[in-house]
Write a protein that binds this DNA or RNA. Structure first.
Lengths: 206, 206
DNA sequence: GTCTATATTTCGATAGAC
DNA sequence: GTCTATCGAAATATAGAC
């Protein structure tokens, strides 16, 4: 047996499709590009996966899950509010540094077919709405006990998510405007974990 | 003369193309849909505009300009820092409430072809980088004079832009998760102008 | 200028040899 | 399982009548 196990063709194709669909979206993706990326022939794609849509659904499901599951877990945990915010920030910036195209992909495809959100949400077993209930109550309690200033929990959550995710969604624009290469962008985001946490904490602490 | 001047066909087509391209992106847009939206025939699109790409370039240029010009003007103005932030927030939320698809469109197309950013940036006559210089200096002065706490100006700007723009980019997701219809989303954003300004001011005030 | 009809190209999908 | 060859549909683009 060779030390390096050769990847099953099916997985090679999936990896390739993941890259291409995530980069280009469904409409922009070409089966030819997937095949080329996988180093095989177009016909073979159809042998393993019936058609483009079948393929896309697998990819979307994975990306959807990557985008939501981590954050859902943290938001619905019973961590203290500030610690929860800290973990959300760290989790988002860490995973998006590794996979910066995920939010753009998920957002684009949900925008072009919003039913997917409900459909895949229940398929993945988490109710996107329920995530919020927990967080909302926690914020209200924190306000009650003067731990934080009065604030609309929806606005707070939008602020946290926006500041974490948007820099990656707009990464090509930000890199150009701020004259950064890949490395300086990454280290800026690494630094951002702390800066952003401090920023938000200061904004809501009495 | 009739009271209502009938719009020139060229403009009817441009309006239709604006809608379709902005909603679907270049790859997802169909000339057939543009024609239908304009209430005319496919062939006529080619009579007025050579081909799909020519058409797209016009649309992109307009959207690009709408996305950047207002913000560029405010950022490079000589308004006091806090007033500048307030105006950025109000401007972004106002224009994006009217045209919520613009940032998603511009971001998507820049991501799929980053050269466009430089290319159109200089075509439009504003240097995306220079916008930042002014803001950065202003922040440094404000820190120096203890008007605000020490903060990385890039991080501050990212926070302002993210919190304004991301809610519109992710609007389909947010609406679903927060169980909002179009009206409640709009009024939430209207309320957000003040909430967000207060949030940011509190975060940076000593 | 606007339409119908048609050509051309691109792309997804299938058949069949190996 | 993998490839070559080919089909067929969809989408863009052009020709030509009115």
């Amino acid at each position: 047996m060779s030390k390096e196990k050769v990847k099953a063709t099916e997985d090679v194709i999936l990896d390739a499709a993941m890259k291409v669909f995530t980069r280009r979206g469904f409409a922009g993706a070409r089966m030819e590009e997937v095949a080329k990326e996988a180093g095989i022939n177009r016909a073979l794609l159809h042998y393993y996966f019936r058609d483009k849509e079948t393929m896309f659904n697998l990819i979307f499901e994975t990306r959807f899950n990557e985008f939501f599951s981590g954050i859902a877990r943290i938001l619905s945990s019973d961590l203290p509010l500030f610690e929860k915010i800290r973990q959300v920030i760290n989790h988002e910036i860490d995973t998006l540094t590794k996979h910066p195209d995920i939010p753009r992909f998920v957002i684009m495809e949900v925008a072009s077919q919003p039913e997917r959100l409900i459909q895949y949400g229940q398929k993945m077993g988490f109710n996107p709405r329920q995530m919020l209930t927990n967080f909302t109550q926690q914020v209200e309690i924190a306000i009650e006990s003067k731990e934080i200033i009065p604030i609309d929990s929806r606005q707070l959550l939008m602020n946290v998510m926006s500041t974490c995710i948007y820099p990656f969604v707009a990464k090509p624009i930000i890199k150009t405007m701020m004259q950064m290469d890949e490395n300086s962008f990454t280290s800026m985001m690494e630094k951002r974990k702390k800066d952003l946490y401090d920023f938000i904490v200061k904004a809501i602490t009495p």
